[in-house]
Structures are given as C-alpha cells and as structure tokens.
Amino acid sequence: MGLRKRAVEDELETVVLERGYETLLLALRSESALNRRDAVRELSAYPQAVTDLLNTLTSEPEHAVREALLGALQQLGGEPVVAGLITLLRSEDAVLRNGAIEVLQTMPEGVALHMLELLNDRDSDVRIFAIDILQQLAHPQAPEWLLSVLKDETHINVVSTAVDRLAEVGRAEMVPELMAIKQRFPKEAYLAFAVDLACRRIEEV
C-alpha cells in the first residue's frame, strides 16, 4: 500500500467517443440523471440546442442536471437564451427563478435590450426580479434604470428593492430623487429608513 500510479494513465488515455447531436438530444430524456447531465454538458457546444435545453430546464427534477443546464445556457449565450431565461422569471419555482436570475446577471448586453420592458412589467414580482438582476449586472446604465424605478414605480415593494440596490450603486446626483421617495410614501417608516441609509452610503463613497 502507499502512493501508486496505475490505472489513471490507462483511463486518461481512453478515447472519448463523440456522440452525435441527435443522440445527445435523446439522452436528455434518459432515466439516469448522470446521463442527462453528461448530455447537457456536451450539448453546450451546439448553439442549435438552446430551445431543447430551455424546455428541459422547466421539467428537470435533479438539481445537478439543472445546474448543468444553466451552465450550458450561460456558455451558449445570445438572444434566444436571454429571452428564454426571462420567461422563467414568472416561474413559481424559486430555485429555477433564482438560477435564471444568476445567469442573466452575467449577460449585460443581452439583458440591456429587455430591461425597460422588465421594469415596466405588469407583474410587480417580475419588476422586483428585474431589480435583482440589476444588482449584479455589470452595465453602465444600471444606476439610471434603478433611478427610473424611483420616478415611475408605484408599488412599495418594488420601490423599496430599488432603494436598497441604489445604496450600493447610486451616485451623489441621485440623492434628491431618493429623498423625494419619502414625500411620495410619507406613511412608510421602513422606506424612509432605507432612503436615509442609501443616501448615507452614497455620500460616504
């Protein structure tokens, strides 16, 4: 017994056979989660697989396979992926929704095209998720988008989320807009507290 160099070499030199695209799509429906995960990982090299990967994401029960699906979609990127992940913001499945938000946060250019639409969505939850995306979105317009929420938004939870985010990314010239929130919602003590905190944070920078 001890340190040993053995089958590793043979194993590493085993030829890994490439599987065709159609075979991989079939493997997405395999009963084995391991096989489904392997298929997803290989499909990340096929841009034409986006629709199948998105459809699989909504029905896949295994966390590890879902993570692989999100990773593959992130790797493939592009407008169909962004549009597909945005539809998941309406999902009742919080884990799936959060996964979609995390990937969208890494796609600033693609998400930028949809941001105003998301911030004006009829569903206040979707508007909050849009602000969640903005929290980590590396896009120069992120502070302006958040500011637009302060001006136009009427739902207290959405405004409150935007104020929290502006505490992190806001600039000094945005302080008057933030302070105006206290007048628009005079009975909301928590919001007044959040506005004061955000203004202090911005001024500290």
């Binding site: 001890g2 340190l3 040993r4 590793v8």
Partner: peptide, 10 residues
C-alpha cells in the same frame, strides 16, 4: 493509513 490504503495522485 497510507500503509493500508493506496493513494493515486494525478
């Protein structure tokens, strides 16, 4: 325990 168990390092 290396006396009783094989370890492979890659």
């Amino acid at each position: 325990l290396l006396a009783k168990v094989d370890v492979e390092i890659c």
